[in-house]
C-alpha cells in the first residue's frame, strides 16, 4: 500500500505538470502568441476547456499529501512558506483572469485580465521552479531557486507552445505539431518534478500514514478512480483538435 500511494502521488504531481503545464506555458506566452485582442482570445479559447480538468490535479496532490503523508505535508508547505504563498497568489490571479476576462465587453477590461493571466502564469512557473530547487536542498530557499524558476518557465513555455501548435495547427504559432510532439513536451514539463520525486522517495515513504488510514483511503477513493479517468479522457476527446468547432463562443 505504501508503494501504491507513492504511485498515486507521483502520477498526480507529474500529471499536473504534463497537463496544466501547457496552460501555464500558454499563459506566459499570451502577449507573444496573441499580439492583438483576437489573437489572445484564440489562445485562451484553445486552452479554456482543459483548465478546470487540469488544475485540479494539484488540488489532488495536496489532498494526497495531507491524507497519505500527513507528516510530510506540514514540513513541505511550512518549509517553503514564501514560495507556497506566491504560488497560491499567482494561481488565484491567473484563474481570476481566465474567469473574468469575458464577463464585461470593454477592451481595456479584457486586456487587463489578459495581463493578469500572463503575470499569474509567470508567477506560477517561477514559484514552482524555486520550490522544486528548495525542496531538493532540504527546504532552504537560495538564489539558485531563480535559475530553477527560469528552467521550469522555459520548459512550460515550450510545452504551451507545442500545445497551441497541436490544438490549433498553423494558426497560433505558425507551426503544426502532432500528438507525439505533445507527449515529448509534456515529459519535458514534468521532468523537473520527476527528478525531485525520485530523490525524495525514501524521505516521503518514511512519512507514510499508518496502514489503517491508507485502508480508509483505498476504500473511499479507489472506487472513484474509473470515473476520474473517464472524465479526464472525455475532456481530451471532446475538446481535442478538429473536434470542437470554434464558432461556439468560448466562455473564458
Amino acid at each position: 500500500m505504501d508503494i501504491l500511494w507513492f504511485g498515486v502521488l507521483a502520477v498526480l504531481l507529474l500529471g499536473y505538470f504534463a497537463l496544466e503545464g501547457s496552460g501555464i506555458g500558454l499563459g506566459m506566452l499570451l502577449p507573444v502568441l496573441g499580439r492583438d485582442q483576437e489573437g489572445r482570445d484564440r489562445v485562451v479559447a484553445a486552452m479554456a476547456p482543459f483548465v478546470l480538468a487540469n488544475e485540479v490535479w494539484l488540488v489532488a496532490v495536496a489532498g494526497v499529501l495531507f491524507g497519505a503523508y500527513p507528516r510530510a505535508e506540514g514540513e513541505v508547505l511550512f518549509g517553503l512558506y514564501p514560495l507556497v504563498v506566491s504560488l497560491l497568489v499567482s494561481w488565484i490571479v491567473r484563474d481570476a483572469g481566465l474567469w473574468f476576462r469575458r464577463r464585461l465587453d470593454g477592451r481595456a477590461w479584457r486586456a487587463g485580465w489578459d495581463g493578469a493571466i500572463c503575470l499569474g502564469s509567470c508567477g506560477l512557473a517561477f514559484s514552482w521552479g524555486a520550490a522544486l530547487v528548495a525542496s531538493a536542498n532540504g527546504m532552504s530557499i537560495t538564489p539558485l531557486g531563480l535559475a530553477g524558476g527560469a528552467a521550469v518557465a522555459a520548459a512550460l513555455a515550450f510545452h504551451g507552445w507545442t500545445f497551441a501548435s497541436w490544438r490549433l495547427p498553423g494558426r497560433v504559432t505558425g507551426a503544426s505539431r502532432g500528438t507525439g510532439a505533445l507527449l515529448v513536451s509534456a515529459c519535458a514539463a514534468a521532468a523537473p518534478a520527476a527528478a525531485l520525486l525520485a530523490g525524495a522517495a525514501p524521505w516521503l515513504l518514511e512519512r507514510t500514514a499508518p496502514a489503517d488510514t491508507l485502508t480508509v483511503l483505498n476504500l473511499m477513493i479507489l472506487p472513484f478512480a474509473p470515473l476520474m479517468v473517464a472524465g479526464q479522457v472525455w475532456v481530451w476527446r471532446t475538446f481535442g483538435p478538429g473536434r470542437a468547432p470554434e464558432r461556439i463562443p468560448s466562455f473564458f
Binding site: 488540488v59 489532498g63 483511503l217 472513484f224 476520474m228
Partner: peptide
C-alpha cells in the same frame, strides 16, 4: 492528527472535488 484529519480531506479532494 494528520493520520485522522488528513483522510476526509484527501477523500474530499480526490473522490469529490476532482470529479
Amino acid at each position: 492528527a494528520g493520520d485522522v484529519f488528513g483522510a476526509p480531506l484527501a477523500i474530499e479532494t480526490l473522490g469529490a472535488f476532482f470529479l
